[in-house]
Amino acid sequence: MKDAQTFGMYGIYEANGWPYESRWLGCLSMTAYFPHPNTNWITKRNWIVLAGSRDGHTWFYLGDRHPFIPNGPGDSWDAHYIRMGNMSNTGAPLLENDKLWFYYYGNYGGTTDFSGLERSDKGRWQFAGGLGTLRRDGFASLNASTDPGLVITRPFVFTGEGNLSVNADVADDGYIKVAVLEEDASELPAFEASNCNGVSTDTIEGGISWKQRDNIGELKGRYIRLAFHLRQAKLYSFWID
C-alpha cells in the first residue's frame, strides 16, 4: 500500500486491542483514500494490520505494517474494505480446536462521494462476513532450516512450577532442544542442550525435559536464560507453568 502513503490520506481508521496470553495484540483497520479517476469522488481502502503492546499504552506495528488481513484480489467481495468483527471482544480472535478464528467483515465498492453516500460500479456497498484462521500462537515464528538456529532469551525469573513447554512445528529431520543458561549465558549442569529431550514433531504443546531433570522447578527464583536450538523448525511460543 505504498501508493496509499504517497497519496497521503492514510492512517489508522479503527484501533482495537485485546489481551492475548502474556501481552496485548490488536488488529488495526488502516485506511487510505485515493482520488477517483475522472470524478471528484474518492476511492477508499481499508485493510487490517497487526499491532502489539506490552503495557497497553505504547503500541507498535508488527509485521513491518504488512497487511495481516489484506484486501481480496480483483473484484472479490472484500477487495476494498475490511474491518474486524467480534466487536463484543474488540476484535479478538476466538480459540477453537487450537486455531484462532478471526471474524471480519468487508465489501467490494469503496468509492465515496463527500456527502457520505457510498457507491461503486456494482451499486451500493454489499457487506459480507469473513473468517480467517491461524494456528494458536501462530502470529510469528522464529525459524531455522537445515542450518541450525539459536534463540537466547533475556534473563528472567518465572512464577510457574517449572514445567517448560513449546508450541512448535518441527519437520521430520528437525528438532528443538533447550539449554538453560545462567544469567551470564553459561550452560547450567544437567540442563545442557545435549541432554535435552526436545521436540521433534508439530505440536501445540510439547513438553521439554532433560535426561536427569523433568523440569526446571529447582531454578525458581534464579535469573536464567533459555537457549533454544532449532533445526528444520518453527518456534511459536514457550511457557513455564
Binding site: 496470553e21 502474556s22 522464529l142 528472567f156 518465572f158 512464577t159 510457574g160 511460543s237 511457557w239
Partner: peptide
C-alpha cells in the same frame, strides 16, 4: 531482566 508468568510467551 524480566519476570515471566505462566502464560504463553510469543515471539
Amino acid at each position: 531482566k524480566m519476570k515471566l508468568d505462566r502464560k504463553r510467551q510469543l515471539f
